[in-house]
Amino acid sequence: MSTELEDLPPPYTPTTAPPIWEPHFIDLSQHSSLVLRKPLDPPPDCFSTPSPPRVKSNDFPPFRISCAGNNLADGFRILYPSGLLEKHGIQQADWTRFLEDLGISARLAGQGLSAVGSRVPITPLPVRGIFSTRATGAVYDSQFTRSPRDEVQTLITVWNQSAFERRKLHVTLQIKAGVDNRAAYELLVESL
């Protein structure tokens, strides 16, 4: 009976976690500069080009692209997942424009401008009469301003509806907690 126990292999104990899948990224950050264009003006070419005739569903696991800093105004790293998005009809120039536009829209929102809606700066309304200077337009205008996060999410929604979803892709803005309790942002890219 002791010979039977000696012949058995030892019980399985996992020593390391399986490797996390990540696509092969082409880093285009050094080719990207501080762009002075307005997002969606003119609309990107991929909004009007037809989708490929046959796009596979769920053909890659989700991947993430991190923000270049802790603020959305820092923009996202310009990383192009080689071999994945081409099958869905998203070329390198389209993806680069998308990532650059997210940073531009966050910087514009910080200035009181919108890349998606009105491009008129938010200014307080002049108030005369019995109202104190403390109440001059702050409550009224605060209903119409969008935070950089709201502005970026709105721009992502436009891209999802106009280019990505018909090509079986979906992008989501997520917040991940940083080591020093500061929020950092990342994009989750999924194949539908």
Rank of each mutant, 00 (worst) to 15 (best):
V116M: 02
S66A: 14
P43R: 14
S162M: 07
L40C: 11
L28I: 08
F131I: 08
T16P: 00
A177W: 06
Q153A: 05
K168M: 08
S66Y: 12
Y80H: 08
G103K: 01
P44D: 09
A184Q: 15
Q111G: 01
D45E: 09
S66R: 14
L40G: 10
S29C: 07
P44T: 11
V55E: 13
H88S: 10
G69K: 03
F144W: 12
D7M: 14
M1H: 15
Q30K: 15
R134L: 01
T3S: 15
S105C: 15
S51H: 04
I156R: 03
I78C: 02
C46V: 14
P52W: 06
D7H: 14
H88R: 14
N181E: 11
N70I: 14
I130F: 10
T172S: 05
Q91W: 06
L188T: 07
S118C: 12
S57A: 14
F144E: 04
A184V: 13
T16C: 04
L72E: 05
T49L: 10
P14H: 09
I90R: 01
E186I: 05
T123W: 05
S142N: 08
S162E: 08
G89M: 05
E165K: 09
D101V: 04
P10N: 14
D101M: 05
R37W: 11
P18A: 12
S132L: 00
Q174V: 11
I26Y: 06
R37F: 08
R77M: 07
P124L: 07
T172M: 05
Q174R: 14
D141Q: 15
T49I: 07
T16L: 06
R134A: 03
G137T: 02
Y140I: 12
R107T: 10
F60I: 04
S2V: 08
R182Q: 14
A177N: 10
N58A: 11
E151H: 03
T49Q: 10
N70K: 15
C67P: 00
V35C: 09
I104Y: 03
G103C: 04
A109V: 05
A17Y: 08
A138W: 06
P39G: 06
A68L: 09
F76K: 01
A177C: 06
L34K: 13
T133G: 10
V189Y: 00
V158C: 03
T13F: 12
L187N: 03
S105E: 12
S118T: 13
L8C: 10
E190N: 12
L192F: 14
R134V: 00
S147Y: 02
L155S: 04
E4H: 13
R97A: 09
D94E: 03
A138T: 11
T3I: 14
W21Y: 15
P61E: 12
F144R: 09
F47K: 05
C67K: 00
M1T: 15
N70C: 15
R97K: 12
S51P: 08
I130G: 03
R77V: 12
T13I: 15
P61N: 12
V158A: 04
T15N: 08
E100Q: 15
M1F: 15
Q91E: 13
R134S: 00
E6P: 00
D141R: 15
G75P: 05
V171M: 05
H88M: 04
I20D: 12
A115Q: 02
L187D: 01
V120C: 11
P61D: 13
P23G: 06
T49S: 13
R77S: 10
